[in-house]
Amino acid sequence: MRPVLILQHEPAQGPGYLLQCLREHGLDVELLRPDLGDRPPAYAGDFSGLVLLGSDHSVQDHLPWIARERLLLADALRLGRPVLGHCFGAQQLARTLGAPVHRNPRPDIGWRELWITPAARHLFDGQDRLLSFNWHHDSFQMPPGATRTLFGVHNLNKGFALGPHLGLQSHLEVTDPGLRAWCAQGRAELAQCHGPTVQTEQEILADLPERLARLRRAARAVYHHWIGHLDRRPVFVRPRAA
C-alpha cells in the first residue's frame, strides 16, 4: 500500500509517538525535511495520508518550501487523502482550507489542560480533558465547515476536524528524549519569553513520565482514529512490455 508521507521541519520536532503508532499498524513511512531542501512532491496520490509536524517558522513566512507544502496540501484535500497537522502543520492545513492564521498576543509554551468538545470526545477515548504540550506563537481561525475539537483558556481554537482531516494546535507526538532536545534547542527563546502562558525548562520537564502517560492515552486514540481513514488500496504496478 501507499506510504504515509511525514513532513518534518525541525530536528527536535520529529514524529515521535506517532511513528510508533504508524508502525504498530504496519504502515510504511516516507519522511522529508523541506526546511533542509527536500522538495515536497506536487502529487499527493502516491501516499495514503499526509502528516505535517511543527516548525519554528510561521506560515506567514515567505519561503518557497512553505508555499510548496500548501500546494501538496491542496492536492491531498482534492484527492481526499487524510491530513494530520501538528501546530505549524495544523496552521498550514487551516490556511489551505481558507482560514486565517494570526499572531497571538503571547506565546503558548508548556503543558496545558485543554477541553475536548462533546462532538470530539470519541476521538479522545471518551475523555473530556486533554493534557497537551504546546509551543507556538501563532493560532488559526476555524476553517469553513470544520468542527472545533479542542479549546483552552488562552486559545479558543486548539483543534479542528473536517472529514478525515485533523488539525492540532498542540503536540501529541512528543517523547521524553524529544522534549529534552527541544528544550535544549529552545533555551534562548525560553529565556526571552515570560508570563502566565510560558513555562520554564524545569517546569516543562517536571513529572515527565506521568504527563507523557496521560498524553499517550489521548494520542493513541486520536492517531488510531486518523489511521483508520487512510487509503489502504494497494498500488498496482503495470508490467513492462517484453
Rank of each mutant, 00 (worst) to 15 (best):
R232P: 00
A44Q: 11
P15G: 03
Q141H: 12
D108H: 14
P107S: 10
A44W: 11
L130R: 08
N157E: 15
P3M: 03
V174P: 06
A119Y: 05
A206G: 00
L72M: 12
V222I: 11
P177G: 11
A42W: 07
A213W: 02
V51T: 05
T117G: 12
P40R: 09
L131I: 06
V29Q: 02
Q192M: 12
W182Q: 14
F140N: 03
T175A: 10
H122Y: 12
R148M: 13
P177I: 12
D138Q: 13
Q192F: 00
A119N: 09
Q202P: 00
D46P: 04
W65G: 06
P41Q: 10
R233A: 09
G14Q: 07
R70L: 08
V237P: 01
E113H: 14
H86T: 15
P196Y: 01
R233M: 01
I6W: 06
L77K: 11
R211V: 03
T200D: 01
D231K: 04
A218P: 01
P118Y: 12
G37T: 03
C193G: 00
N155C: 15
H165E: 04
G49H: 05
A241T: 09
G145T: 05
R216N: 13
A161M: 14
L168Y: 06
N155R: 13
S170C: 15
G80V: 10
A99Y: 07
R214N: 02
D46A: 15
L53T: 06
R129D: 03
V4Y: 02
S139R: 15
E10H: 10
Q169C: 07
I109G: 02
L31Y: 02
Q199C: 05
L123E: 12
A12W: 12
R148H: 06
L230D: 00
C21P: 00
A161Q: 15
